[in-house]
Amino acid sequence: MGESLVCDICGKLATVHLTQIINNQIQKVDLCEECAQQKGVTDPEGFSLADFMAKNIQSTVGPEAVQGPALVCPSCGCTPRDFKRNGRLGCPDCYEAFETLITPMLKSMHRGDHHTGKIPHEMLHRVGLRKAINRLKDQLANAVEQEKYEDAARFRDELDQLKSQSEPPAR
């Protein structure tokens, strides 16, 4: 089926089209003559698309970003190596953990690197409120513990106000 006309690396006219199966998935790469040579693609025997994709990710962010032991998603334990192997991230927090890796990829993947579509306002409001309530609860507990009762009273008032806001609206 259709091959991309433009080189995946430089955007020039692509003349080399490669398809390989990596982890049971068909992956395609379209390259111009020049980039194909530079990447050593011209030797079909020795070329592995998996390596190419891995190198390509590395070259955009520097090898230490990929191999550095520090880069692990704190929430789910996923590493850039897992991402590369599966083509999928571990959890929503991976986007923040691997920001240096993902941001350059987004530019070539999408029409922009910033969301301009739908925003779930109601949900964001609800989540924001819940976080604020939890923060106040902690502050209240701290204030009580330290016997700062004036502060505690203030926190309790604020908390009551937020809680009344978070009551589900009557429908």
Binding site: L106, M109, H110, R111, D113, H115, T116, G117
Partner: peptide, 9 residues
């Protein structure tokens, strides 16, 4: 592409 354009666009 899914990023950089709104749903309507």
């Amino acid at each position: 592409q899914t990023l950089g354009e709104s749903e309507q666009e």
